[in-house]
Design a protein around this nucleic acid. Structure first.
Length: 565
RNA sequence: UGGGGCGUCGUCUAACGGUAGGACACCUGGUUUUGGUCCAGGUAGUUGGGGUUCGAUUCCCUACGCCCCAGCCA
């Protein structure tokens, strides 16, 4: 798939050692285990690429498994979205699509076995009481009064729990470990809770649901997972993971933890992302500003760019905050090779070419992709009236500004040199159009006399064009680390979406369709919005702007900003 | 401060105990009909202090800093 790095990450080194020692018979079998309680984001993409990538590199397998042990939070809508996202990213789990709920019966049997082994007991304490007796970071907890209940009594009560004889929260099944263990996870953790909730797959069959720690190792074990890769916060849980599997004396995968991805100027918490959706700050999980996979897809990211990004950020155990730059770079890198170029004007300023004949159309030739000759060429209509970008004209230009200005000559890309001869303003002094002359000798964009023009600008005919709406996006948050701020709402960037309702694009784009990528020359990469765009009303999303070294120069001159859009 | 982790350029990430390298970002210069791309070059880092060693990012000790854990969430 992508070029492999010349070095290995720490997980690859562990696998190499395991293969050397024969720990798993040289097998590599991973899994990606999302909980269907929200949409996948770019952080999940890192994990997906890691798990599927490892399996691929070592000729192993990777399962897709929904960790659906909490019916209260989980929905089928999320299952569908997750399947679409993983598959869109380019990964294939074959016939190995599993659900934790597939194993509820087996988990139940294992739990009965643990009770019989005197390693688990039904506890009648309430949630509050359990919390009160768990102790804290410094103090040991105290044993539950039900801890020494007989096996038979626990067995009977557990059956009754399963049958729905008790109220939600009235009892739990707990592992009997050590209430004074320094690792809080080992203080008689809850294995099952009573939850009379409808499960998206098992319906009302179960009144009890397994907790993550109890369920996850069993799922891994049952599927023959070799390396169970998860994020750092589960490091503390590995002891419990191992304890359960050891008590059951069953096949025992190795849990390995890595640092989750963080991206600056955005958030990765599903809880916060859901809040942005629910509170209407964004249009949905797939809003192009969201760091979700569906949002990135709608924004115009390619699966390749995301996979390459995942490769570039690497895998380690150190907390990290990756710069948004790197994600954007990955997209530009991919699209520079793939995207056909086209001209579009986002903030139109009309130009009348005074010496160009009325009602005449001159069809000029343009290169579709300078990075890919096979992309061919196209024709662009040149007419007496055209639009250029407002920001490509300055009445009083900065020193290094080399676009259009009064009396100045610039090149219209693939067309002619034009010279600005007149600036037309309305009663309020706003520039409404420009009068220019063109040099017929410069057709195609070069002059027989070899004279140089510093600037080349894009343009679109005012009659031969397509009208479109364009959406420009910026970071969702103003703070580099929004989740660390006191009030996350205060850091929201209210200008993260800018609508350009009336834009003009060359007629070539009539055939544009969703899923294609274009570079609007000098503006960035764009693609049609997969929800709001229609053949009657094109809506383009800017996926990412081009790198812009002018912007930096411009900042130096910003003391005197005039007429520049 | 109990337990579990982690400290390398601005940001990610490498380096059997042997020249601290790569990517992004940034800065120069070149090419250019996109102020894009491409090309060439540059700036910039081992948390501090000890120790072992001919030699320490790596091993040991110590200090400091950061992250995670007290859900019947995952």
């Amino acid at each position: 798939m992508e070029a492999e790095k010349p070095y290995k990450n720490f997980i690859q080194k562990i696998i190499d050692e395991d293969n050397l020692s024969g720990k798993f018979n040289k097998n590599v079998h991973t899994r990606f285990p999302p909980e269907p309680n929200g949409y996948l984001h770019i952080g999940h993409a890192k994990s997906i690429c890691l798990n599927f990538g490892l399996a691929h590199q070592y000729n192993g397998l990777c399962n897709l498994r929904f960790d659906d042990t909490n019916p209260i939070k989980e929905e089928d809508e999320y299952v569908k979205a997750i399947i679409e996202d993983v598959s869109w990213l380019g990964f294939d789990w074959g016939d190995r699509l599993f659900y934790a709920s597939d194993y509820f019966d087996q988990m139940y049997e294992f739990a009965v076995f643990l009770i019989q082994s005197k390693k688990a007991y039904v506890c009648d304490l309430s949630a509050d009481e359990v919390r009160a007796t768990r102790g804290n970071l410094k103090e040991a907890g105290t044993d539950s009064p039900f801890r020494e209940r007989t096996v038979d009594e626990s067995l009977l009560l557990f059956t009754q729990m399963k049958n729905g004889d008790f109220e939600d929260g009235s009892r739990t099944l707990r592992a009997k470990i050590d209430m004074s263990h320094p690792n809080l996870n080992m203080r008689d953790p809850v294995m099952y809770r009573i939850l009379k909730a409808n499960h998206h797959r098992t319906g009302d069959k179960w009144c009890i649901y397994p907790m993550y720690d109890w369920a996850h190792g069993l799922e891994d074990s049952l599927e023959g997972i070799t390396h169970s890769i998860c994020t750092l916060e589960f490091e503390d849980h590995r002891l419990l993971y191992d304890w359960y599997l050891n008590q059951l004396d069953t096949y025992h995968p190795q849990q390995i933890e890595f640092a989750r991805l963080n991206l600056n100027f955005t958030i990765m918490s599903k809880r916060w992302l859901k809040k942005l959706v629910d509170d209407g700050y964004v249009s949905g999980w797939d809003d192009p500003r969201m760091p979700t996979i569906s949002g990135l897809r709608r924004r115009g990211y390619t699966p390749e760019s995301i996979r390459n990004f995942a490769e570039k950020v690497g895998v380690a155990k150190r907390d990290n905050v990756v710069e948004m730059n790197l994600l954007e770079h990955s997209l530009r890198e991919d699209l520079n090779k793939k995207a056909n170029r086209v001209m579009g004007v986002i903030e139109p300023l009309k130009i009348v070419i005074t010496n160009f004949p009325e009602n005449e159309i001159d069809y000029l030739e343009a290169i579709n992709n300078p990075e890919d000759e096979s992309a061919g060429k196209r024709r662009i209509a040149f007419t007496k009236e055209i639009y250029i970008e407002r920001s490509d004209f300055m009445e009083e230009p900065f020193r290094k500004y080399f676009r259009l200005a009064p009396g100045r000559e610039v090149r219209l890309r693939y067309a002619f040199y034009i010279t600005c001869v007149d600036v037309i303003k309305n009663s309020k002094g706003q520039i409404i159009e420009l009068h220019c002359t063109y040099d017929p000798e410069t057709r195609g964009g070069s002059s027989p006399d070899g004279r140089k023009v510093k600037g080349t600008i894009h343009w679109v005919s005012s009659t031969e064009n397509i009208e479109a709406e364009v959406r420009l996006y910026d970071r969702l948050f103003l703070e580099p680390n929004p989740s660390k701020s006191d009030n996350i709402n205060d850091t929201l960037n209210i200008d993260s979406l800018v609508l350009k309702k009336t834009c003009f694009i060359e007629t070539e784009m009539k055939k544009a369709s969703v899923g294609e990528f274009y570079q609007f020359e000098r503006l960035g990469y764009f693609s049609l919005d997969n929800i709001d765009s229609s053949p009657e009303h094109f809506v383009f999303n800017r996926s990412v702007a081009l790198r812009d070294s002018w912007k930096k120069i411009e900042k130096g001159f910003q003391t005197s900003k005039i007429g520049c859009g």
